[in-house]
Amino acid sequence: MEGLSISDANLVVYVHPSQSKNVRMAILRQLSTLLFKYNETFDAVVLGYQFDILDKTAKILSGIHPYFGVRIQAKLLTLSPKPDMLLEGKVVKLTRDSIHVIVMGVSSAIIAREDIRGQFKYRHKHGKESFVSRSDKHHVIKEGVVIRFAVKR
């Protein structure tokens, strides 16, 4: 899928001395804080990671709490959608003014009314909401369907 990439990163993870008995678990906790949030450093949303500790020795940082830095090499699976890129997502909610979509089962996107093509008309019938094409009545956007859309920003 477009926008997905695997990046190699050399990182330093700072670990509190109280977590020194299980450094690997401390690193996992730190890396988990990156998941499913936009990260400016990577210019993407981090979806997954895999890492190896590069050096068995750590540098102790001076200060109030003497954290120590552990050098790791990580492979990061990232999603970085750019304008005009095509993405696919499952429709999870419809309103008169928007279509709410889950992309790759993890990231949410909203398509605002002004971005929905003019050929679609909003319909609320029998408690179900949908957008129906004016030219082809069988072309319907409703909850549960997968749609392809272009990224605006």
Rank of each mutant, 00 (worst) to 15 (best):
L35M: 13
H126I: 03
L94G: 00
I6Q: 11
E129R: 12
H16D: 10
I141C: 01
K90E: 02
L54W: 07
R148Y: 12
K75N: 11
Y14A: 03
R153L: 09
A9S: 12
G144M: 03
R113N: 13
G89N: 04
A44K: 01
T33S: 12
Y67C: 04
Y38S: 11
V12G: 08
L77P: 12
D55H: 13
H138E: 12
H124F: 10
F120S: 01
S133W: 06
H100E: 15
K125Q: 10
I60S: 03
S133K: 09
A44C: 11
H139C: 08
Q30P: 02
V151R: 00
A150M: 15
V23Y: 02
I60C: 03
L34P: 13
V103A: 00
G69V: 05
Q19D: 15
D8H: 09
I60L: 05
S7M: 11
Y38R: 14
K75F: 05
D115I: 04
L35C: 10
T41Y: 14
S98F: 02
R123N: 08
K93Y: 14
F68A: 02
P81C: 08
L86K: 14
D55N: 14
E143C: 09
S5H: 05
S108V: 05
P17K: 06
D43M: 08
K137A: 04
G127V: 04
S5D: 09
I102A: 01
R123A: 07
V103L: 01
A109S: 15
L47K: 12
V151T: 10
Q119E: 14
F42N: 01
F131P: 00
R117S: 12
I141N: 00
D97K: 15
L4V: 11
D136M: 04
S98A: 14
R123P: 04
K137L: 04
E114L: 10
S135D: 13
T41L: 10
A150T: 15
G89V: 06
D55I: 06
T33Y: 11
Y67D: 01
Q50G: 09
A26G: 07
I64W: 03
P81N: 08
S80E: 13
L76Q: 03
G63R: 08
D52L: 05
I141L: 03
H124I: 03
L31G: 02
Y67P: 08
P83N: 07
D97G: 10
H138P: 03
L47G: 08
D8C: 05
S108W: 04
S130P: 09
R24W: 00
K82Y: 12
V140Q: 02
P17W: 06
